[in-house]
């Protein structure tokens, strides 16, 4: 364990801990834009600078490992000034169109501008102009709002191991893009959208569907497969407009493209809401109650088993069911029906 002092408070943390993590253990609020505990430290945004006793320049807390006897200051007049300058630089190259931005109310950059009181800007100057519409079906990419924190690049490489995007060009013209600036063509897991601290990456599905203040959050479990990822449904006026996942869940906030973007069926008018029964041959499927439907299934199963034997029946289950459901299903077929004709789209 390493002993150090942060803002006058003593703390003991394991070797290899960063100053930022140690400070967060003390509930100290150090601003960051490019840090994500699930990704390797980057040190790009420069907001988490802190002062170390005996070191002439401020250092970034996210990249600096703790050392024995270190004396850290996380708040000072000079640090406030430097952080403010950095945010001001970012805003001087930003559309500042919060009033129409999807992320308004849920944007780290907006938050920082608010707390640092940055209405005016000393540095107004040339702004990057990117008007290319990315034609991919899921992810809206407004690169003018990008602050180059590279979280999207890193999550795509480090977590998803896809590497669909990277930084291109240099200096002021540096930008995140797919190879040759083509339209994004990846597996659309949307992890990049999940980690973006600004409005640069959003889901096309939830564009203009509701403001943050109106969103109701419902914690639930993804119905797509047996993994059981924890998801948060964002709903506005009883309509699900978006799915996200929190970092402190078993899936650490990561989702796949189905879990993140495949929720539109919930609001579709042609979605099945009751069982349907075809009551006469060549007739239409008609809505029925669960009791009626289950009664029909049970009587038909009994009839077929009696007339043709249990092996005339077979059961096919789905990967969207949980392990427990699939277990009960095969048990039902083997013991109640009495057949081993049982399969599953991913094999039993």
């Amino acid at each position: 364990m390493i002993d150090l002092t942060i803002d006058g408070r003593d703390i003991s943390v394991p070797e290899g801990t960063t100053v930022l993590d140690a400070a967060r253990l003390l509930n100290l609020d150090i601003p960051t834009l490019c840090h994500d505990p699930r990704l390797k430290p980057y040190g790009g945004c420069r907001l988490c600078i802190v002062e170390l006793e005996g070191v002439p320049r401020p250092v970034t807390a996210c990249t600096t490992p703790v050392a024995g006897g270190m004396v850290v200051t996380t708040e000072s007049e000079q640090l406030y000034r430097l952080r403010r300058t950095v945010i001001e630089f970012l805003l001087s190259d930003h559309p500042n169109d919060c009033m129409v931005c999807q992320r308004a109310g849920d944007c780290t950059l907006q938050e920082l501008a608010y707390f640092y009181g940055l209405r005016d800007n000393r540095f107004w100057g040339e702004r990057r102009r990117y008007d290319k519409e990315d034609a991919n079906p899921f992810i809206k990419r407004e690169m003018e709002k990008c602050i180059l924190c590279a979280k999207c690049v890193r999550v795509c490489g480090e977590v998803q191991a896809v590497g669909a995007i990277d930084l291109a060009y240099r200096g002021f013209n540096a930008k995140v893009c797919p190879p040759y600036e083509k339209d994004l063509d990846c597996e659309f897991c949307g992890q990049c959208v999940a980690v973006c601290p600004t409005g640069a990456l959003t889901g096309k599905v939830w564009e203009a569907q509701g403001r943050q203040k109106d969103v109701k959050y419902t914690e639930t479990v993804c119905p797509y497969c047996g993994c059981g990822c924890n998801i948060t449904l964002h709903s506005v006026r009883n309509r699900v407009i978006r799915v996200s996942s929190r970092e402190n869940t078993l899936n650490e906030g990561w989702l796949c493209s189905k879990g993140r973007f495949g929720f539109e069926f919930i609001n579709k008018p042609d979605r099945l809401r009751t069982p349907l029964i075809r009551r006469r041959k060549d007739g239409p499927l008609e809505p029925a109650s669960w009791d009626e439907a289950l009664g029909l299934i049970s009587s038909r199963f009994e009839g077929i088993k009696k007339e043709h034997g249990p092996d005339a029946l077979g059961g096919l289950s789905s990967a969207r069911c949980t392990n427990e459901e699939n277990y009960a299903f095969q048990k039902f077929f083997r013991t109640v029906i009495g057949t081993n004709n049982i399969d599953h789209c991913a094999r039993y």
């Binding site: 790009g44 420069r46 950095v86 630089f89 040339e126 590279a150 200096g171 002021f172």
Partner: peptide
């Protein structure tokens, strides 16, 4: 220097551009 900045960190990427302006 501003055209040779790699673009990784904010002050160098935007700051040198503003100095030049």
């Amino acid at each position: 220097t501003q055209s040779e900045s790699c673009g990784k960190c904010t002050p160098c990427r935007i700051g040198t551009k503003r100095l030049l302006e």
